[in-house]
Design a protein around this nucleic acid. Structure first.
Lengths: 344, 344
DNA sequence: CTGTTAGCGCATTCAA
DNA sequence: TTGAATGCGCTAACAG
């Protein structure tokens, strides 16, 4: 029985309504399902009809409605990625790497900016779950209880990126931020830095790195680090102001400043320079992220390098494998590397 | 007639299948449509039933399936944003501003990285159109003919961001990159810079800025600029290498180098410093983007400031207004500002 | 190899 | 104020 359609046959481009399978089928003289098959499972269709159908498809400019397709198949080919902000190269680089892989594999990426807030994350998650993504990538391991429960019940593969913890939701890909702090603290202690300082924005992972450094100092019986935490966003200004505050509180300059990002570190270097302090001779400045893959003499910036390329790849890989039902490691440590500026 | 459902009544969380309106309706002793109304048009439902329904909703953890909802209403609440790469603060800042507004307005953002390629953009667009987004944000004005046609026929509001041209697809929000180049060239010509240089990555908008500068020099009868174009991505290294190449080709150093981004400019400053050239005394270095809102003495970086906040806001505003049927400006010039480092 | 039937989950009629 | 019927566009399952 003819479907009671508002539309006449032979939908033309430009008339404002999207072309549907039915339109194509009619034009090609086949049934809708044959069109669908010609597109998605061409091996099930004879060469002749396939060709004819595809010709009509391209002539009419038909694009399958993925909303309908997803509804019918329960596979949205959509991956949701929640992250603090895209306006921070440290996250941007990883997300870029993830998206590259996903796009290649035919998935699309829904991005949700949480602004470093677990509550915002939860709200976003609620909204995003409605879209029935095939997978979800979260940043970090701190989520509200409601989030955790939602995700547990949703049956959607979840990757927690950027950090490792003892109670994974599902898959984790990242590295231990405590370990970063410990490594940094111990390394520079060995180099004779006994007045270590921390300048960070208010990011939970930065705080964990700071804790790691504090522990290293504590374990070595060294003097505790001075710490300045400033509000987001992470800009040069944070470094400048942070260092100024630190000097105001402790007039004797630190011999090492570990920052929450390279950007902040550049600010510290600027402030130090303007005060006549030489970097790294008077004060070593250590950034975090290595988003420029910088190994230059200038700016005199040492950094903890995060392999964002590898992290992105591992995240995408884990997700994609899971989606095709292959076994997946549930915890991938992508590590980090301390890169010191080559002394001049 | 009872729908032949694979599922028993009273879906519980954790059993792997998402809760549906029908599940909720059954539990609440109402019809599915009442559940829908209680959620979306509460004023049409009596307080008593509304309360009961909402209680069940939260108890069962029901989230409406937006795929189904969108299919039924032809409104996906999805905005697609195509941009070269998210791993470049200049784009990241704008996209961040856009997403903030969209999220606030209840829209979600589908991000597609085109890698500066019109062909990739086209491929992405094809895929994305299947998702039936309510709006599309493109970067720049250069698109393949197929893209233009697709978009014209799709009947989807389109915003071209970042650039202005004479043949808009729909709405344009941005500024003239030629004007940037002209302004820069003329301004520094007036300041006595007669040996101007250009160091850029291979970005179409950077090229247009370069052309603008070239024209300014030409119009003034000045010596043409030397130009070095390097492949992406845009990193410090581009600036270092670019400046080295420039000096190799023209041993007398330029008195101004206009770069395609602040990042590249930092690289130029680094290279200049390492060669004993003082910035800005010997060579002025001008970046583009001002992603750090920097007005510092160090690094000695002047820049062309792009108001990404404003651009993001205007893009979102235009789109959102269009979506609720309100009249919209079809061309918004968000301007730019030349920021010179305060001389010391 | 191709078509028929039916349903994915929701919301827009229209009716009660 | 509530509900029944129906369709959004597509595809899985089952014929033929």
């Amino acid at each position: 029985m003819a479907r009671k359609s508002r539309r006449s046959a032979g939908a033309a481009p430009g008339d404002g309504h999207p072309v549907t399978v039915t339109d194509v089928a009619r034009q090609a003289g086949v049934s809708p399902i044959t069109v669908s098959r010609a597109l998605h499972r061409p091996e099930l269709v004879s060469a002749a009809t396939r060709e004819r159908v595809l010709e009509v498809v391209s002539r009419m400019g038909y694009r399958p409605n993925l909303l309908a397709g997803s509804l019918a198949t329960s596979r949205s080919h959509l991956i949701a990625i929640l992250l603090p902000t895209v306006a921070n190269s440290i996250y941007a680089n990883v997300i870029h790497a993830i998206m590259d892989r996903l796009t290649e594999a035919g998935y699309q990426s829904l991005i949700g900016p949480t602004g470093y807030s677990a509550e915002k994350e939860q709200a976003l998650l609620e909204a995003i779950i409605g879209r029935r993504p095939d997978g979800i990538v979260l940043t970090g391991t701190l989520h509200t209880a409601a989030c955790r429960e939602r995700l547990a019940n949703a049956g959607i593969p979840v990757v927690e990126a950027w950090d490792l913890s003892d109670d994974p939701l599902d898959i984790q890909v990242g590295f231990s931020h405590e370990a970063v702090g410990q490594t940094v603290g111990a390394h520079f202690l060995k180099k004779g830095c006994r007045r270590q300082g921390l300048i960070s924005v208010d990011d939970p992972r930065a705080r964990r790195r700071n804790q790691g450094l504090a522990r290293a100092l504590l374990d070595a019986g060294a003097r505790p680090a001075s710490e300045v935490i400033l509000p987001l966003p992470s800009t040069w200004e944070v470094g400048r102001k942070g260092f100024a505050v630190m000097l105001a509180e402790h007039p004797t300059p630190p011999d090492l400043v570990f920052c929450s990002s390279d950007t902040v570190a550049l600010g510290v270097i600027a402030e130090a320079s303007s005060r006549g302090l030489r970097v790294p001779e008077d004060v070593r400045v250590l950034g975090f992220g290595d988003t420029q893959n910088g190994r230059f003499a200038w700016p005199p910036l040492s950094t903890v390098s995060v392999n964002s390329e590898a992290m992105g790849e591992q995240v995408a890989r884990a997700l994609l494998r899971r989606l095709i039902g292959q076994p997946t490691e549930t915890r991938v440590d992508t590590g980090f590397e301390l890169i010191e500026r080559a002394s001049t």
